[in-house]
Design a protein around this nucleic acid. Sequence first.
DNA 1: CTGAAAGCGCTTACAG
DNA 2: CTGAAAGCGCTTACAG
Lengths: 356, 356
Amino acid sequence: MPQPNNGAGAKRATMKDVAALAGVSPKTVSNVLTGTVGVRESTRTVVEDAMATLGYVPNLGARGLRNGRTGIIGFALPDLATAFSASLTHAVVQLAHERGLAVLVEETAADPTREHLLVARAREHSIDGLILNPVRLQDSVVEHVDHLPPVVLIGEVEQYKTDRVFVDSRAAAREATEHLIAQGARRIAVVGGSRGARPGLATSGLRLRGYLDALDAAGIEPDAELQISVRQWTIEGGAGAVRALRATGRPFDAILCFTDSMALGAVHALHEAGLQVPRDVLVAGFDDVEHARFAVPALTTVGFDHVAYVTAALDLLQRRIDGRERAAEAVVVPHSLTLRESTAALPAGADPAAEA
Amino acid sequence: MPQPNNGAGAKRATMKDVAALAGVSPKTVSNVLTGTVGVRESTRTVVEDAMATLGYVPNLGARGLRNGRTGIIGFALPDLATAFSASLTHAVVQLAHERGLAVLVEETAADPTREHLLVARAREHSIDGLILNPVRLQDSVVEHVDHLPPVVLIGEVEQYKTDRVFVDSRAAAREATEHLIAQGARRIAVVGGSRGARPGLATSGLRLRGYLDALDAAGIEPDAELQISVRQWTIEGGAGAVRALRATGRPFDAILCFTDSMALGAVHALHEAGLQVPRDVLVAGFDDVEHARFAVPALTTVGFDHVAYVTAALDLLQRRIDGRERAAEAVVVPHSLTLRESTAALPAGADPAAEA
DNA sequence: CTGAAAGCGCTTACAG
DNA sequence: CTGAAAGCGCTTACAG
């Protein structure tokens, strides 16, 4: 029978083994490895040969126990299954690796107890820092702040004790809404914003505020029935929102969704109902995930550079890990509205889509 | 100025601190924590109170140094940005957490050197095990097998030394192709399979083989020009494949794509070219990601239970970690073809889509 | 059921 | 530039 790979075969070489083979002390091996102290060239060569011979790989857990750095950072998002999450995770893993950091990925989900577990787990594994999208945990993160490692928040949160990276959601939502108005829309629904959201508080509230700014500037009376709150910002959530919207019986000629995933779900639900985008309804999203560009029809969306976003977060985190005595910083990543087929101008004088 | 959260305030409590406060030895605290040895109820209470008072969280790195278990597993995929990756990552993180495991996520990418880095990194962090989708690293993983921790491979690989989880891709591709034929397609293109793929070797080869099986059974002569190889199995890759396909000038009336992401890209590229799905061309995919269900048109796809898939991988890994003396096992996860709008029957006598 | 000793693999002081 | 000692926080034997 085939011998399964069990890794138990060769007992892993330690620094002591390398030192013995090279004829030096473990400290010298350590010096070669970390490079903090100069080592004579000949000594270095002997040590490096010994490491190669033994297939030596340092044990970062042991190192971390001594010097307090594990080389692991945490990355926590509410829902790893969305397209936006995939794009960010991709960028974080890629960019963290370039800095020699490994990434422990966490999911906070809707369950509020997950957040506490997450924080505890992060501490258990002695991560050097945490990049956190606190959409659902804004309040409690603040509470636990004493127990947290260095943290960078991504996304809009009312929190000034911690470094953070975000886009100007209010301005972005306003621009997107203005665009829909310019394309001829007047009865613009919004998907994602909670009706009772306190403006300024988080992503959802800020985007709703920007939407209202644009309506106000255009002299359009906002209609609370057109503001659909969505619990899960997923494709399914977006589809459900459109069904809810149609159930109100209110006519609408455009939909601004707070994520591309929801927008794609909205387009699907409209299609299901026999409504065509953009002929009958305009649709715009947020995030500019790869899918937005390739949807049918291609989706107008508020985009920003995901790599720049993640880079900013990692830069802040690195600085916080290295030297902790700084005031909290905020980095605003530029956004731009990308125009595509889903918001091509409505035919002049078209009737807004009414109830089924 | 606001005081940033730096975590440096309260020096973290250790087991020794808890022991001192509770008036017991560190070993007793350890016993309470691990539960391996019985502890008198009154002692337990005192210790637990002390832990709560100090906000004690165990240091798993230190524990791992002593007992060889870190509680971290690795999860490595070629490309974290795809919809399928997002779905799997979501499931792995969720299900691993339920088992008390944290997940270090890795990306192997197209770069072959990444694989070596990944293995080295995995060892550095003393992960307890690794779940690996070796699409691009089949050969070298085998080479490095001595240095790897317990590994479970996901996806089809010709490798019998290691536990693995996969779907029967050949049968699945055959079923999907038979369905396309039943819907009236005769000139079926395939996207993802390399022309020169050695059948039986990996996902791509197996799916191509299943496709050829179906053509053969239906008495349809395969056309090498309809087999488009794609380097990156992304949306963009799928769109590019359709452009390449159209550039050949060969007519085609259906496309089988080896992932849903590629299928969605294909639909987009067809739409761009003025071809409608399913009126002019049928399209089917693989994986049944959430998006497939909500695409316009909704996508016919070979689906399987992602949670079952990941659960099988975790079960195998857990057993391998616990007791290492077993022959390598293979788990085949059942698949099923989900029929949707993208493969609604072609109009009888329709002309296959020809070149632009 | 509980404790004192030793050690997991590494690095930090401290010497030379 | 290199070494011997001590210790990071925990658990594994070994005693009682």
